[in-house]
């Protein structure tokens, strides 16, 4: 395993220290328990807290700042954070208007955040993000995963919270954005969890994993490598099949790299996806292309589509100032 690392056990702490040192005006970090929060708090607003296993950077700590999150709780690599982290973060950023947890739908994240919510004495609510259409949804199972669409939820709810909305309004918007958002991804390589020291899965030089998540877990099926346009068709068929947008509908198109795919290819995917969406009579009016919800150094990418209306468009366009997203 070749990584920039001193001791595997201190990796997360060193990386978070580096993040904070690179953004001293913007962010602060606490350890024991670990969370990252805005340097300047204080605004009288609903506090947005997210978190999850590390290894998805810049998600979530890179999205802490004005117009987005108030705090992020990073767990060990691919391991949900623990409830004491959420409680400490909440104590640090709650202004009395309540706390909204934005949680990717995994067994571990769900349970850890839920235990924190149960222990928390102030008003709180939780938005569960489950945008990954590679997984079938069902109330009898863990259900769909939260993947790159989480960024869209965090951005839009972040903008609403900044405007002074109530906890109930933020929670309702989060659920609404989540319902309007669908994602699916494909991987070319596995990633290597530092503590494990070897790739999570083996994959041949001409194989791809379709319907992967963001933890190096295998996808829904393995296929032979195919042209970009065909990959895009596979992903968008599933996404549009889920969202069923009406003709003419305005969309946000987010091309997310998993970490090991060059930006050039992500832009190529954006071109292919945009062409396909337009051919379906849809209007991709906003775009985000880059490595935002990563899976360590995994090569691959996901497409995310969010159905827009005037409110969501305005919330997307609202100013944001975080380490990884700024406009």
């Amino acid at each position: 395993m070749k990584k920039f690392v001193n001791e595997v056990d201190s990796m997360l702490r060193e990386a978070l220290s580096g993040l904070i040192e690179a953004h001293p005006q913007l962010l602060r970090v606490e350890f024991e328990p670990t969370f990252v929060a805005r340097r300047e708090g204080g605004a009288n607003k609903v506090a947005l807290i997210s978190g999850g296993g590390s290894g998805h950077e810049p998600l979530h700590a890179g999205f802490v700042g004005r117009g987005m999150l108030d705090a992020a709780c990073p767990g060990q690599v691919f391991t949900s954070p623990t409830p004491d982290q959420m409680l400490a973060a909440a104590a640090a950023v709650d202004t009395g208007r309540g706390v909204l947890f934005i949680v990717k739908n995994y067994a571990g994240d769900g349970m850890n955040f839920q235990m924190a919510a149960e222990m928390l004495e102030t008003g709180n609510a939780t938005v569960l993000v489950n945008d990954d259409v590679a997984v079938e949804n069902s109330t009898h199972t863990t259900g769909r995963r939260g993947v790159a669409g989480t960024l869209v939820v965090e951005k839009m709810v972040g903008a609403l919270a900044e405007q002074g909305a109530t906890l109930a309004e933020c929670k309702a918007l989060g659920d609404r954005v989540n319902a309007a958002t669908a994602s699916m991804g494909v991987a070319f390589t596995s990633c290597t969890v530092p503590a494990a020291g070897r790739p999570t899965f083996d994959i041949g030089p001409d194989e791809i994993e379709i319907g992967v998540g963001i933890h190096g877990e295998p996808g829904r099926r393995r296929a032979a490598h195919m042209p970009a346009d065909e990959i895009v068709r596979t992903l968008l068929d599933a996404i549009l099949g889920d969202l069923k947008p009406q003709a003419g509908r305005q969309l946000l198109l987010h091309v997310n790299g998993f970490g090991g795919t060059p930006l050039m290819e992500l832009y190529l995917l954006h071109h292919a996806a945009g062409r396909r969406l337009k051919a379906e009579g849809l209007a991709p009016v906003r775009s985000l292309v880059g490595n935002y919800t990563t899976s360590l150094e995994m090569a691959g990418a996901s497409l995310t589509v969010t159905l827009l209306d005037d409110e969501l468009l305005a919330l997307w366009d609202a100013p944001v100032h975080t380490a990884a997203l700024r406009w």
Partner: peptide, 12 residues
């Protein structure tokens, strides 16, 4: 353990 393990196995 609750504040140590994390993941799915931690809370369980």
């Amino acid at each position: 353990l609750l504040s140590t393990i994390g993941g799915a196995s931690g809370p369980l």
